[in-house]
Simulated assay, not measured.
Amino acid sequence: MMRSILHMAAPVVTMAMIATATVPAEAGAVRDQLAAQLSQRLFPLFDAVGEDARHMRTLRADPALSAALQARVARRAACADAPLCIAHAMLWTAEEAEALTRAAGTLGGMPAPDDGLAAQAGREVAGVNAIVRSYGLGDVPPYPDIDGAGAIDPREREARLRAAQWLAPLPRAGSVQAMDPSFDYALALLDGSDRTDAIGYEPRDGGANRAAMERARAIDWSRYRYSAMIVTGIGPEIEGMALSPVGKYHLRLAADRFARGEAPFIILTGGRAHPRATPFAEAAEMRQALIDRYGIPAEAIVIEPYARHTTTNLRNAARLLMMLRAPMNKDALIVCNPSQSASIESGDFVRRNTRELGYQPGTIGARLSPTELLFRPLPQSNRVDPRDPLDP
Rank of each mutant, 00 (worst) to 15 (best):
P279K: 09
P236W: 07
A255K: 08
I301Y: 07
P392H: 05
D145W: 04
R72I: 06
S134W: 06
P113N: 06
A342E: 08
A259P: 01
R75K: 03
L59R: 08
G261I: 01
L324C: 10
R293M: 07
I303P: 00
V140N: 03
V335K: 04
V335D: 09
T278Y: 03
G116K: 11
M15E: 06
L378S: 11
R325M: 05
A71N: 01
P305W: 13
R162C: 06
P63K: 12
D388W: 14
G192V: 13
I146N: 02
H7N: 10
S369N: 14
A283E: 01
A208G: 08
R223H: 01
Y249A: 14
I234E: 05
H274S: 12
I291G: 04
L324K: 12
A36F: 14
R204Q: 13
E202W: 09
E214I: 00
A242W: 01
L320D: 05
A212S: 03
Q360D: 01
A178E: 09
E26C: 07
P392V: 12
P236L: 02
L38A: 14
A35R: 10
T310V: 05
V128S: 13
A19S: 15
M2E: 08
R272A: 02
A259Q: 02
M286T: 06
D292E: 14
F265C: 10
P111N: 08
M56D: 01
R123T: 10
L107T: 07
A80P: 01
A159S: 11
R210Q: 09
T232C: 15
E262D: 15
E285D: 06
A242D: 07
A103W: 00
F265P: 07
G138L: 13
M328N: 05
G109D: 01
D388V: 09
V13D: 01
G50I: 13
P386R: 08
I291A: 05
E299K: 06
G136N: 04
N316T: 12
A318G: 07
M286F: 07
T101K: 12
I238K: 15
H250V: 05
S39T: 08
I301Q: 00
N329P: 04
R57A: 15
A212P: 02
E26I: 06
A29Y: 09
A64Q: 13
R315L: 12
A121L: 03
D139H: 08
A78F: 05
V350M: 03
W92S: 06
V13G: 00
F43K: 05
P392E: 06
L320V: 01
D391H: 00
C79I: 06
D197M: 00
V384L: 02
R160E: 00
L84C: 02
I296V: 15
A164S: 01
R293N: 07
V128W: 14
A281D: 05
S182G: 07
F375M: 03
L187K: 09
A284T: 08
L373P: 01
T196S: 06
T58Q: 09
A99L: 07
L243W: 13
R293D: 15
I146H: 04
A68E: 12
P154N: 09
L65D: 02
A173D: 02
W92D: 04
A67C: 09
A61N: 15
G347M: 05
S175K: 12
I238S: 08
G116C: 11
Y306Q: 11
L65V: 10
R376L: 03
N382A: 15
E202V: 14
L6S: 07
Q165P: 00
A67K: 13
E239Q: 14
A186H: 10
